[in-house]
Design a protein around this nucleic acid. Structure first.
Lengths: 235, 235
DNA sequence: TATAAATTGTGTTTTTATTACGCATAATAT
DNA sequence: ATATTATGCGTAATAAAAACACAATTTATA
């Protein structure tokens, strides 16, 4: 391919992408998908999945490609998080990393495959993370903060749950992410008043004792319509 | 300098930074600092100030350096906005741009200097922007959206005003950014109840008719203390 | 198979926050 | 002087959030 003009810089910086992939289940809480590094530096350490951006692909394409190559998981949510570019964040050379925030739904929370690029990939509870390579702990902290603040005004929380869920699961999710007790009755009143959940004529499969709850589903179409008309919520 | 390990990629991507610099004054509203491009591509077009990142500087250092070189203005607020990386956003070659969001306070809203890097630099009202080079209009839109949503829960709005301001200026700022009428009395009650403004024993200099208002000042120290204790607000 | 334990479903009252609105005060403009 | 413009302060009506109690449905177990 030909370019009309030359870019006049002798810059020696590489650009990479990294993904903070969240999973969630009601009993174990929030978890994170990590890979074990096969090569130096930080060989054997756990790290975020990611890698270098190819010349012809977009940043989003780079993240999804790397995730597929390194972990094989299917993500259902992706957004850009922050770009980390301190000159010394990689010991090899200057690497600027565009980090992404991703979610794998509870039902799709299958075991990750180990592939050629990473010697191992596994889920870790966010409260029990191992030491991470590079500045990846900082990236993870930024992502957790983003998730915690974003669920308060955006339905991103529904991406963590199965498409059909009993109300108590939603309540536990918010109680855990907001890190405060949630009154079941007031919470349900508030959420239902938003008009973005469909009440299904199905009951949750029994798990242990107690009355099984009715199932609900997030109605994204309805949500998007409301947003177009200026709707927004705060929890 | 020596590196222990080689980075195995033949990536041909350059990394740049761009800044969306906001100014504001009560009579003219929100304005934006643009530069006129001296070289192709888009020679003569207006564009965001910015440029390539040097190997040894951080991204923030790159932005402030470029702003100084190209416009000479002194900014009092800077935060990362978003990273734009579509393969075709620059006709010369692949360039990933980390964009920043910056503010120049009303009092420091001096005329920008034209310098060597840019043939011209000027303030434009956000409602009367010229055609912009590259994907800079998209970046500007993202920044305006960020500003509009952020003033609702963050004191970033005070960065736009002079350090001492009459309450009516704050009211006009919010009314303009939130794009809705604001009841003077309720707005003042709400803001004062937050406890983050100091009421000064000074009156605003007279501008035209009407009773001059008392001056107020944002107390950042107090705000930071409150935030440490879990404080947050919504307007 | 009766009873305890666990969990969901629904409603009312109290408290707090928001919105709507009126009138006096202090300055400039004519 | 008097009209005009803008600030300062307060109260009533309305809406939202928080606090709180008991019935219904299921599994566990005595």
């Amino acid at each position: 391919m030909f370019y009309l003009y030359r870019v006049k810089t002798t810059q020696n910086i590489k650009i990479a992408v990294d993904a903070v992939v969240f999973g969630y289940d009601t009993s174990n809480g929030l978890s994170l998908l990590l890979i074990r590094r096969k090569f130096d530096p930080y060989q054997g350490s756990w790290a975020l999945p990611g890698g270098f951006v190819l010349d012809a692909e977009s940043l989003e394409e780079a993240v999804t490609r790397e995730l597929k190559e390194e972990t094989g998981v299917h993500i259902n949510y992706l957004e850009q998080l922050y770009t980390f570019g301190s000159p010394k964040r990689d010991p090899r050379q200057r690497i600027v990393s565009v980090s992404y925030f991703a979610i794998v739904r509870e039902s799709a929370h299958q075991e990750p495959e180990a592939t050629t690029d990473a010697s191992d990939a596994a889920w870790f509870n966010v409260t029990e993370l191992p030491n991470l390579a590079f500045d990846h702990q900082t990236i993870v902290n930024t992502a957790i903060e983003r998730l915690r603040s974003k669920v308060r005004y955006n339905p991103v929380g529904f991406e963590l749950l199965d498409t059909k869920f009993p109300f108590s699961d939603l309540e536990k999710l918010y109680s855990s992410l907001l890190d405060r007790p949630v009154d079941r009755r007031n919470f349900k009143k508030k959420i239902m008043s938003l008009g973005i959940l469909d009440e299904l004529n199905e009951k949750a499969p029994h798990k242990g004792a107690g009355r099984p709850g009715r199932l609900y589903r997030f109605n994204r179409k309805r949500y998007d319509e409301l947003v177009r008309d200026g709707f927004h919520f705060e929890l």
